[in-house]
Amino acid sequence: MTAKPRLAVFKFASCDGCQLSLLDCEDELLAVAGAVEIVHFAEATSRMEPGPYDIVLVEGSITTPDDAARIQDVRANARFLMTIGACATAGGIQSLRNWADHQEFLQAVYARPEYISSLATSTAIADHVPVDFELRGCPISRQQLLEVLVALIDGRKPQTPGHGVCLDCKRRGSVCITVARGVPCMGPLTQSGCGAICPAFDRGCYGCFGPAPQVQPRSLTGHLLEQGAPPRQLVQLLRNFNGFAPEFRGESERLISQQET
């Protein structure tokens, strides 16, 4: 990559939390600003230059016809397109609508639903355009974002570990809350990135960083069902910020179809 790559940040359906991770870099922000030229970042600056861009960070999922068209335009102007966060990578918490009646929501929430133009689904960026790199998390990890940016600038492969949350629990000395207390936890199925925060504070993992490589959700849910966890609780556990990621989605749908039969 040439010196001073042009960096742009685009937002789709999301809460802006992942973009804030970039602003939250505080100590490193000046160094980042020195290494790249930030030419489009609505959250931070009114300077908005047209493309093409060397590095594009995309936050959010596709939920409207306009956004479905806009992401094509963003892709056409991006040399390297990276999604940031669970919304962009897996559809986000708003993908819960994918299992519900979109029209019913519109009627219930809006006084004049005819003014609303939205899609029946919330889908990942990769369902619409090719994505060069996916950075997981709800929100993303600041350290991982910096690592990927530095690696891109240096022209090397980023070190973003693919192991599960359990390994981080063990490294930090957290006792397994599933084994010691019977608390259902997504840790064994979820990719690392947060440093295993929730189990250290007595809560099961919410799966914020999405499925770890080669996960087998059925083995875990089968064991938790045997231990007396209600199927409904396991479906809710799987349908969180990354509920529409294929591995989690497949298992929650299997649990529901099993209940119905």
Binding site: G164, K170, A212, Q216, S219
Partner: peptide, 29 residues
């Protein structure tokens, strides 16, 4: 098919000794 590949057995094992070594650089390297 049962194994979650979650690493818990190796982490609690008192003899398992595997590790990884990473070079961690600051932004300017």
């Amino acid at each position: 098919e049962r194994c979650l590949s979650c690493t818990n057995c190796t982490m609690v094992c008192p003899t398992c000794f595997c590790s990884s070594v990473n070079e961690v650089a600051d932004l300017g390297a």
